Amino acid sequence: MYTSINIRPYQPGEESALYAVHYSAIHLVARRDYTAEQIRAWAPYDTNMCQWANRIRAINPFVAELAGELVGYADLQSSGYIDHFFVSGKHPGQGIGTRLMQHLFQEAKARGITELTSNVSRTAQPLFEGFGFEVVEQHLPERRGVVIPNALMRWSLPLDIAPEHDAPRAEQPGQRLAPTPEPFDTPNGAHMHWFLLALKKYATFSGRARRSEYWYFVLFYLLIFFALSVIDGIMGSFSAASGMGFLGGLLTLGLLLPSIAVGVRRLHDTGRSGWWLLLAFIPIVGAIVLLVFFAQDSAAGDNAHGPSPKNSFA
């Protein structure tokens, strides 16, 4: 899916098309998290297009194209601040927000930026959290006299895996770096955030979890379990009969609840009830069916369990 989404620098003359993206994102998607009054103040019918065009030229964003149509845009300032991040409300659940965020990570890596920040709407926070952003503080900004809550969120690259700064990719004055062809190239260690995200939602059975959150949780769980099993073997506390040792048993017990919770949220994300997790008690067949369910992509758009974690904006 991502290969059909083209990310490129904004071009002068596209300001009106980007306002259409901005407007649809707020009026069609954000309305689930904000009142009608807040929506009208945030993206008014009578916006000053001259001021809007100046704002777009100032932030110089990247745009997302799908079949030749502009369907999203986002910017990355030299300070690491993300001012705008919007996905068209007419194209939900197609991975556009994810692809834009991936590109911003690529840009940050190329420029040697180790910290990203943004004032993020309630609607976009699940997407940002999925990429490892954390809430720093809640804000209550006003537009046209109406309070529209958001949160300052921050992502920081761990110091021990910070990129080299002595030879960044060349960038000519007044130009933006060209999109890189790789589908995803986040800084090393970024995938660990998915595991940590699942731990933060330790006993959260509501909402949705995309494939990345579920499978990276499983991956790091197994890696830690294997490492602890080796230690158990060295200490003589490993039991061949049970297939685990003392430390492995503690890990299994400690992560039992988040394992169930992330499984339930993953089923929710595919449009299914969490009760399908009971298939695990059916030998072999149940496990195979659940593996198929867990491998499926997110259900497009909102469903009964919440908004798509793939379609969010700041």
Rank of each mutant, 00 (worst) to 15 (best):
N48Q: 02
R32Y: 12
A58G: 07
R55E: 11
I26M: 04
R31S: 04
A30C: 12
T35R: 01
S79Y: 05
Y10F: 14
I56Y: 03
I26Q: 02
E69R: 12
Y10V: 09
D46P: 10
Q11V: 15
E15C: 12
A74I: 14
H84D: 13
Y45Q: 12
R32E: 13
R40N: 05
L18Y: 04
I82Y: 02
T47F: 14
G68L: 06
H22Q: 09
E69M: 07
G80P: 05
V21T: 07
Q38K: 03
R31D: 05
G13V: 03
D83R: 15
L28I: 00
V63W: 03
G68P: 00
V29R: 04
L28F: 02
A30L: 02
L76G: 03
P9I: 13
A64F: 10
D46F: 08
P61D: 11
Y73H: 15
I59C: 11
D33Q: 06
Y19W: 15
Q11A: 13
P9H: 06
D75F: 06
I26E: 05
L70F: 07
G80K: 07
N48K: 02
P12M: 10
H22I: 00
G72W: 14
D46H: 14
Y34P: 12
A64V: 14
A30I: 00
D33F: 04
P44Q: 03
Q38P: 14
Y45A: 12
Y81Q: 03
N48R: 02
V71N: 08
D33R: 04
Y10D: 06
S16A: 15
W42L: 00
A17G: 04
F62C: 05
Y81I: 03
V63T: 15
E69I: 15
A64M: 08
N54E: 09
S16D: 13
I7G: 06
R32L: 02
P12H: 13
Y10N: 07
A67C: 09
Y73D: 03
L18G: 01
P61K: 08
L70T: 15
S24R: 07
T35I: 05
A25M: 03
I82F: 06
A41G: 10
I26R: 07
A58R: 14
A58P: 00
S24P: 02
S79A: 06
A30N: 14
T47I: 07
Q11M: 08
A17W: 07
Y23I: 00
R8K: 10
R40M: 01
I59E: 10
E69N: 06
Y10T: 12
A64N: 05
F62N: 05
R32H: 14
A53F: 01
R57N: 12
R8L: 07
G72T: 13
G80A: 09
Q11L: 09
Y81R: 07
G80T: 13
I56M: 08
I39Y: 03
L28A: 00
L76H: 03
L66M: 10
A53W: 02
